[in-house]
């Protein structure tokens, strides 16, 4: 006997392998998870433009602003400059996010936690335990491998730990995009502390070159954190293979190590140091990285919604009355 199974049965069976029956609540949850948060991306674009304007103001419009300032004023102004990149991003995010509100207090808290964690651990671990100043710059391969395995992994793990133990399990973390938002907040907190250290170590900075360096730091760390945040978001809402999160951390750490390796090599290769080249390079890296992340998130959200729609369709099919089986007439059954 060769009973021909109805197409609906085949579809149902197939869909059970990939999806499960879905409730309205679940559909709402998935629609929320797959929220694209356009306001976030617009905020990023505005923040980027704001940072470039910030650099231009202190390099082109007022290039001699800091010339007559005392050392204490230079330190104070340097510390304020350090806060500028994060401040710009947070303010744009706050302004644009009113229609799709993410608790700004929580974003700000993660930024502060990122700062505190970095302030507490960065120098004791990298300078105290690993003593990077003694060996990292000894030769090119030490700079590259050490920059990835020690500095890159440590810095990115700080960002990961801030998000994982700060907000990952909280109800505010309810969209895939939240991984990126909170990781960038943590990354900017990290970059801010690095800029603080830079200013304090030098007893103030030149406002022109200093402003470029701070923006380069912020752009770079926001990019790496964006990549890591994408993986964190996926891990929060998807069943991921065992290598998935380590892969995300590795990609971010490699980017971190490679970025600063290339910057330093290009600075030492040319006789004259040109900070604008660093700024252009950081901007290109940030734009390309965030575009890729944006594309990945958009495709992923599409896939989530497609699977959800398939499940809804299956729900409707399951609600239909069963169709009698088609009988093979030749066998007379």
């Amino acid at each position: 006997m060769h009973a021909i199974r109805p197409l609906d049965d085949q579809l149902r069976e197939q869909s059970e392998m990939t999806t499960e029956t879905i409730t309205t609540e679940e559909m709402n949850r998935l629609a929320h998870v797959a929220n694209g948060r356009l306001s976030f991306w617009i905020g990023i674009v505005f923040a980027l433009l704001g940072l470039l304007a910030f650099v231009i103001i202190f390099n082109v419009v007022f290039p001699t602003l800091g010339d007559n300032l005392s050392q204490w004023n230079l330190i104070l102004l340097g510390l304020l400059f350090s806060l500028a990149p994060a401040g710009l991003w947070l303010s744009f995010f706050y302004q644009l996010d009113r229609q799709e509100p993410e608790p700004v207090e929580m974003v700000f808290s993660i930024f502060v936690v990122g700062m505190l964690l970095t302030a507490a651990l960065y120098q004791p671990v990298l300078q105290g335990i690993f003593e990077i100043d003694r060996w990292l710059y000894a030769n090119w391969w030490a700079r590259l491998l050490g920059g990835i395995l020690v500095v890159g992994f440590f810095e990115q793990f700080l960002v990961y730990a801030t998000v994982r133990y700060g907000v990952f399990k909280r109800p505010e973390f309810d969209e895939r995009m939240d991984g990126i938002i909170y990781a960038i907040a943590a990354g900017l907190g990290f970059a801010t502390v690095l800029n603080f250290i830079y200013v304090l170590d030098r007893g103030g900075v030149d406002l022109d070159i200093g402003s470029i360096r701070m923006v380069v730091n912020a752009l770079a760390h926001a990019s790496f954190a964006g990549v890591l945040g994408y993986f964190i978001g996926q891990t929060r809402f998807e069943k991921t293979p065992i290598y998935y999160l380590p892969l995300g951390l590795t990609i971010a750490a490699v980017m971190n190590g490679l970025f600063f390796f290339i910057l330093e090599r290009s600075s030492t290769a040319s006789l004259s140091f040109n900070p604008w080249i660093n700024l252009i390079f950081a901007t290109i890296v940030a734009v390309i990285t965030l575009l890729i992340v944006f594309w990945l998130v958009a495709r992923d959200n599409e896939e989530t919604l497609r699977l959800a729609r398939t499940a809804v369709h299956q729900n409707r099919l399951a609600a239909l009355p069963p169709i009698p089986p088609v009988v093979d007439v030749k066998e007379g059954v």
Partner: peptide
């Protein structure tokens, strides 16, 4: 695999 590591929408 990076984009959609799971074939379901189930959370971990």
């Amino acid at each position: 695999a990076l984009r959609k590591p799971s074939v379901t929408n189930q959370p971990p």
